[in-house]
């Protein structure tokens, strides 16, 4: 079940983590995209909870609307919670002609989920993304910044998923 992002409460621990991220970016508001990416990495569900966005807006001379303009504009920034291991499946032509449909089908079947849903244990979500520059490993997926591919058989997909269990 995907948890409700509006119920997310910011802890002191997260606050201090955000402070540290801001320090690393010299409290420079032009680095907001990098800051948001780093904050997202700190959240186990890889998204920017509202409370965190509000907190950043308090700390930087930026309007909340500018922060949300970025969050909603950039594909790599997410408003909604995802799995702890979000599986990004590359949907570029190079992966499509290498039968990423089969890969997607295998993922859906093995995990029992579709786009927009998360596995019962909160572990996996499946997302389609544009080319992530691993066409030499097509068809490929990317999980928490690591590319896995080529994944051509169901057995390879099963082995990959088992790494995260």
């Amino acid at each position: 079940m995907i948890e409700d992002s509006s119920k997310f409460e910011i802890t002191d621990e997260l606050k201090s983590k955000i402070e540290k991220i801001l320090d690393n970016h010299y409290h420079d508001f032009t680095q907001i995209v990098g800051i948001l990416l780093d904050v997202q990495d700190e959240i186990p569900q890889h998204y920017i909870p509202k409370a965190a966005a509000f907190y950043i807006a308090e700390k930087l001379p930026l309007k909340l609307s500018v922060i949300y303009d970025c969050i909603t504009f950039y594909d790599a920034l997410n408003e909604e919670p995802r799995g702890r291991y979000p599986i990004e499946i590359c949907d570029s032509v190079a992966c499509k002609v290498n039968d990423n449909d089969f890969l997607l089908g295998s993922l859906k079947e093995l995990l029992g989920i579709d786009f927009g849903t998360v596995t019962y244990d909160g572990r996996f979500t499946i997302e389609k993304v544009s080319c992530f520059g691993a066409c030499d490993r097509a068809p490929a997926v990317r999980i928490n910044k690591t590319v896995y591919g080529p994944l051509k058989t169901k057995e390879q997909v099963r082995k990959l998923l088992e790494q995260f269990v």
Binding site: V33, G34, L37, F73, Y74, A76, L77, V129
Partner: peptide, 8 residues
């Protein structure tokens, strides 16, 4: 060093 965020 600046990072993009997935926009072509």
């Amino acid at each position: 060093l600046y990072s993009g965020a997935g926009a072509y």
